[in-house]
């Protein structure tokens, strides 16, 4: 068969600059995530994939599907494509040291005789490395762990990563900072390059789909003692950051803590938290009273 006789290859659907601006605006309103229209290649590629998957010939047709599809399945698929999920165990581990050396003791001391569970929330939890790291850090490094019930909640806006998080299977490179003894205690080897978190640990973390800009979903999150929200707010604009910070305030118990990513600063977002400087990290505390 010569070139002339080949069937024509379908060109990818065309997405104009106006389409991208319109999409960024829509995506922001739905998720609070500010997509920069200058990242055309990233956005176009993912939109084209979703349009092809739904057999949409034009961007307008696809946007109508996303907006009006009953059940919102395509909106979720789009969110899954547009969000970045790259992490590993014990990433920026100084914050977990801060948790087990200081924050948890403060929370436990404030509890007094009240033995309500200590509740820790990892958001976004991506594929689960962070909430499992939190669980392992507590079990390994907090001497009072057996005196309290501890609940670890883990949420993400991306439903696909939540499935992977619950499955708890990781390539060896995700475990490169995990000490051998810890790895052998909390993981089982599946094959040469894959490890799975042990069942007890996987079953102790509660994974859920949450958009931190959605007031209805955030209203379910209450009575939290520590929130790890690292490297999420950098994708938000000022207003969405403020909104998220206020949702966190309401989700936290008085005296509860928020840990942000190392390049993020709560003082540039909102003054409703008090900065707390510990030897390992600066975190942000809801005032006790």
């Amino acid at each position: 068969m010569n070139d002339m006789s080949r069937p024509p290859v379908a060109a990818p659907p065309k997405i104009s600059a106006e389409d991208v601006v319109s999409f960024c605006d829509f995506f922001y309103k739905k998720t609070g995530i500010s997509m920069d229209a200058s990242r055309r290649y990233f956005i176009d590629r993912r939109l084209e994939e979703r349009m092809a998957a739904n057999d949409c010939k034009t961007f307008r047709e696809y946007l109508a599907l996303v907006k009006f599809q009953p059940g919102g399945g395509e909106m979720q698929a789009l969110i899954n494509e547009m969000t970045v999920n790259e992490t590993y165990f014990f990433r920026e581990d100084y914050q977990f040291q801060c948790l087990t050396r200081h924050m948890l003791d403060e929370i436990a001391d404030r509890r007094g005789n009240n033995r309500a569970p200590i509740r820790i929330w990892s958001v976004p939890c991506s594929t689960g490395e962070e909430p499992y790291t939190i669980a392992i850090s507590i079990l390994e490094n907090w001497g009072r762990a057996n005196d309290f019930d501890i609940e670890i909640l883990a949420s993400d806006i991306d439903s696909r990563v939540l499935g992977r998080a619950q499955e708890g299977i990781y390539e060896a490179r995700a475990l490169h900072r995990v000490p051998t003894k810890v790895r052998d205690t909390y993981f089982r080897k599946l094959d040469n390059d894959r490890w799975q978190v042990i069942d007890d640990l996987r079953e102790s973390v509660d994974f859920s789909l949450v958009n931190v800009c959605n007031p209805t979903q955030m209203a379910r999150m209450r009575g939290i003692d520590v929130i790890f929200c690292r490297n999420l707010l950098i994708y938000f604009d000022d207003l969405s950051r403020r909104r998220a910070a206020e949702h966190f305030y309401e989700a936290l118990n008085p005296g509860g803590f928020v840990a942000l990513g190392h390049s993020e600063s709560m003082s540039r977002i909102s003054n409703i938290f008090n900065p707390r400087k510990f030897p390992e990290a600066i975190v942000h505390q809801r005032p006790v009273s």
Partner: peptide, 12 residues
């Protein structure tokens, strides 16, 4: 293990 499952969305 001291960890409990919370069932965040429903039980919190």
């Amino acid at each position: 293990m001291a960890l409990l499952k919370a069932k965040a969305a429903e039980n919190v």
